[in-house]
């Protein structure tokens, strides 16, 4: 069986880079990209494009503050870049779901087809697994970056004086979002090591969050100390993060630890699995 180490950075980069090619230069990838672009055009045109008028409407403001305050989002209403406040909420909740779909075929398709057999004669299993993870995260990073730049353009079109502050805000949002989404990609990396198809990977991921959530909820109901099991689920911190009510250390630390654990388990399974 292949020894997982040493890691060759060149091979790792090649494998990760090929994921970008797969997303942006294949028909299937381009169709997914077109669907993504259409959805985001609508999001940019309506919720984000009209963020200011929605938020600054006198009637809406009080209602929004009441509702936002009760769910901990009041800090967002103080952002001068209303577009980013809207973007932040939409991206934070939509990208994790989206990432489960676009990252559903990291290794499973190649394994079922036998293509991984060609790869494993040229790179270690760790390089394949970690390279694919990095590649998928890079795809997600590109998509987040594109939508952020588009949001920045909408902001600049409304009020150019907000652009400078907007860039800083965009960078900060970008960094937090990527770290937040990493465990979702890693979860799909893990599921790919034992699932039989990308569709099954998606089904298993949905079951993990729904059935898993119910089981953990029941366990917590019996033994409250088991609330720590919430950390088994990527995105556990998103609710607090959405209202900017989470310390930076937790906002970054929780997803990074989750990602590391998920990847370690995935590597353990992948290194022992038959190709």
């Amino acid at each position: 069986m292949a020894t997982p180490l040493p890691i060759n950075v060149g091979r790792l980069t090649q494998i990760a880079g090929f994921e970008l090619v797969r997303m942006f230069l294949t028909k299937r990838g381009l169709i997914a990209l077109a669907a993504f672009a259409l959805v985001w055009l609508i999001i940019l045109r309506y919720p984000i494009g009209q963020a200011v008028s929605i938020i600054s409407s006198p009637n809406f403001e009080q209602i929004a503050r009441d509702i936002s305050g009760s769910i901990g989002l009041s800090k967002l209403l103080d952002w001068p870049e209303a577009e980013f406040a809207m973007y932040w909420l939409i991206a934070l909740y939509s990208f994790p779901v989206f990432s489960l779909f676009i990252c559903s075929d990291q290794t499973v398709g190649d394994r079922e087809r036998g293509t991984l057999r060609f790869l494993s004669l040229r790179s270690t299993r760790f390089e394949i697994l970690f390279g694919r993870f990095i590649g998928q995260l890079a795809v997600l990073t590109c998509l987040v970056a594109i939508t952020l730049v588009a949001t920045l353009a909408v902001l600049g079109y409304r009020d150019p004086s907000l652009l400078v502050g907007g860039v800083g805000r965009a960078v900060s949002i970008f960094s937090i979002l990527i770290v937040t989404f990493a465990p979702f990609v890693a979860l799909m990396t893990l599921i790919n090591t034992f699932a039989r198809s990308s569709r099954l990977s998606i089904v298993l991921a949905i079951l993990y969050f729904t059935a898993g959530g119910i089981v953990v909820g029941l366990l917590q109901w019996q033994i409250p100390a088991l609330s720590v099991l919430d950390y088994l689920f990527p995105g556990v911190q998103i609710e607090q993060l959405a209202g900017q009510n989470l310390p930076l250390l937790s906002a970054v630390g929780i997803p990074l630890v989750q990602t590391a654990v998920l990847l370690a388990v995935a590597q353990r399974i992948f290194a022992r699995s038959s190709l």
């Binding site: 292949a2 020894t3 060759n8 293509t115 057999r117 494993s120 004669l121 040229r122 790179s123």
Partner: peptide
Amino acid sequence: PGSAALFNKVSALPQDAQLD
């Protein structure tokens, strides 16, 4: 078998394996 030291030295056509 499968170790990194064998990359570029051992190659194979596995039965039924396909390219993407």
